[in-house]
Computed example of a mutant assay.
Amino acid sequence: MPETEVKATISKSTGLPRKRFYRARAHSNPLSDSHFPVPISPSQFDYSLHYPQIFTSTDQVDGSRKVQFADIGCGFGGLLISLSTLFPETLMIGMELRDKVTEYVKERILSLRVTNPGQYQNVSVVRTNSMKYIPNYFEKAQLTKMFFLFPDPHFKEKNHRRRVISPFLLDEYAYVLKPALTEKELEADPVVKLLSSATEEGQKVARNGGQTFQAVFRRIVPSDQTS
């Protein structure tokens, strides 16, 4: 992109990318084939590419510094940005299928890193199909939180297979999640308060006087298992 075009897409007042240059369709077909790189396994995920101030290409990623939060279908990244400063020591990533929206989030994060030195180094975004490739990014019990905010409900029965929440996919999500929180931990979790207000979709619902309904799912471990 020519330098003049790059400057045009960045707001002079905020230093952030202008969303109108990254508009895309509200939804994408998760069953269609898209062409983007996908790691063969979680060990092949390049942390230095996403978190360059934390990792170098020669770093060995240990268990304490792996991604712990994943926002599935992160949209324009509102929740990620809010969580980044709330949990500055936690690595988190947004996963988005739409290419223009993913590019916007990338530019938004880069701009925030420039204007806020030392901050937003723990957050990133990747263009991918979460319904197909979750096991390629995360190991068993790696994540402490997964977010699915305002997903397309696909009301028509013929489109139920496009739902990001389904009995089949819940098995995969459970695999990459750590065991359940206690009730006390859940009540004290500051993230719950952000679920309806941090995202662009949530803000739109609020402006229109609508309602949001939250559901928090926790991975339950059988009594004869420890992980």
Rank of each mutant, 00 (worst) to 15 (best):
residue 13 S to L: 05
residue 27 H to M: 04
residue 102 T to A: 13
residue 12 K to R: 09
residue 135 P to M: 06
residue 148 F to R: 04
residue 91 L to M: 13
residue 155 F to T: 03
residue 5 E to I: 10
residue 46 D to N: 15
residue 15 G to R: 06
residue 78 G to Q: 08
residue 129 N to S: 12
residue 4 T to N: 08
residue 32 S to W: 13
residue 66 K to T: 09
residue 9 T to I: 11
residue 92 M to L: 02
residue 153 P to E: 13
residue 173 Y to R: 09
residue 32 S to T: 10
residue 4 T to S: 06
residue 192 V to E: 03
residue 220 I to F: 03
residue 145 K to F: 02
residue 74 C to Y: 03
residue 138 F to Y: 12
residue 157 E to R: 14
residue 214 Q to I: 07
residue 29 N to D: 15
residue 32 S to G: 12
residue 44 Q to I: 02
residue 71 D to R: 04
residue 66 K to N: 00
residue 88 P to I: 06
residue 143 L to K: 11
residue 32 S to C: 13
residue 110 L to V: 14
residue 83 L to S: 06
residue 116 N to D: 03
residue 50 H to M: 13
residue 137 Y to T: 08
residue 24 A to D: 12
residue 48 S to F: 07
residue 190 P to V: 06
residue 46 D to E: 15
residue 224 D to N: 07
residue 158 K to Q: 11
residue 20 R to E: 13
residue 137 Y to E: 05
residue 203 Q to C: 10
residue 35 H to N: 15
residue 74 C to D: 01
residue 39 P to H: 12
residue 45 F to K: 03
residue 205 V to Y: 07
residue 73 G to A: 07
residue 73 G to I: 12
residue 202 G to I: 11
residue 223 S to E: 10
residue 98 R to G: 10
residue 158 K to M: 03
residue 200 E to C: 01
residue 147 F to H: 11
residue 224 D to F: 01
residue 177 L to W: 00
residue 142 Q to Y: 08
residue 16 L to F: 02
residue 81 I to W: 00
residue 16 L to V: 05
residue 109 I to C: 00
residue 206 A to K: 13
residue 18 R to Y: 02
residue 88 P to T: 02
residue 220 I to D: 05
residue 95 M to Y: 03
residue 172 E to C: 05
residue 74 C to Q: 05
residue 121 Q to A: 04
residue 195 L to G: 04
residue 169 L to Q: 12
residue 122 N to Y: 06
residue 203 Q to W: 04
residue 96 E to W: 06
residue 129 N to I: 09
residue 143 L to A: 05
residue 129 N to T: 11
residue 151 P to C: 10
residue 96 E to C: 04
residue 103 E to D: 11
residue 1 M to Q: 15
residue 221 V to D: 04
residue 111 S to A: 15
residue 149 L to D: 00
residue 124 S to R: 10
residue 151 P to T: 08
residue 146 M to H: 07
residue 154 H to S: 07
residue 30 P to V: 08
residue 23 R to N: 09
residue 33 D to M: 12
residue 130 S to R: 06
residue 194 L to F: 08
residue 184 K to Y: 10
residue 172 E to K: 11
residue 111 S to I: 03
residue 122 N to H: 13
residue 150 F to D: 02
residue 189 D to W: 14
residue 224 D to V: 00
residue 207 R to N: 15
residue 63 G to V: 10
residue 53 Q to H: 14
residue 44 Q to R: 11
residue 6 V to E: 15
residue 136 N to R: 10
residue 60 Q to A: 08
residue 100 K to N: 11
residue 90 T to A: 00
residue 28 S to G: 12
residue 207 R to L: 15
residue 7 K to W: 03
residue 42 P to D: 07
residue 80 L to M: 00
residue 25 R to L: 10
residue 86 L to Y: 03
residue 21 F to Y: 12
residue 145 K to I: 01
residue 115 T to F: 01
residue 42 P to G: 09
